[in-house]
Amino acid sequence: MSAILECKSLSKKFTALTALSNVNLTLERGRIIGLLGPNGSGKTTMIKLLNGLLVPTSGSILVDGKLPGPETKKIVSYLPEKTYLPDWMKISDTIEFFQDFYPDFDSKRANEMLERLHLDANRRMKTLSKGTKEKVQLILVMSRNADLYCLDEPIGGVDPAARDYILNTIITNYNENATVLISTHLIADIEKILDEVVFIKDGNITLHASVEDIRSKEGKSVDTLFREVFKC
């Protein structure tokens, strides 16, 4: 079985800047991995590349050994940083939408999670607060039995209770053999749920290590290490 994600000399240049330069990275299955870096370090570019929303300038990115396309989109469950559900849809419409397009979507699981939040499936997206919209999106994304979950800043700007809810939802729902890739700059909040971290700085991967290794070898938290590495 091939690695779930493989970047080979991956570069992405925009007119004014190089977002990723010559990235080599292999991610294995069955891990929760943090993609950590400050804002503008290339996290989102990386995630867009693996979802086929951008095309590499050079090098390649392979998901399950394949170039991004309909086949890889079937096995990647992606939570972007945006609220991307049309606001005229009812929550039940969004469930039907996911059910229609993703064969691995488990609508029973989605409905159970909605019930636990006491969310009425007849509510329209536009009547929901931003925080609730984000929760609905997370529920949809985590109700898929995907091979790779790709979560872009899932806990950016939420209160501690919501953060715990989100982390709990991720831990309880991801597929056993799947990899969860979480991009964030809020390391302290999520480091305890990570197996591995990838540090990204100015478009380069500066570290890829096991979290427990960092703690036992360096005797410090990932957050502390991050602050040292990315000190301004």
Binding site: N51, P70, E71, K73, P80, K82, L85, P86
Partner: peptide, 9 residues
């Protein structure tokens, strides 16, 4: 973001 990550061409 929703539409272009659907498993379609």
């Amino acid at each position: 973001y929703l539409m272009f990550t659907l498993p379609t061409k």
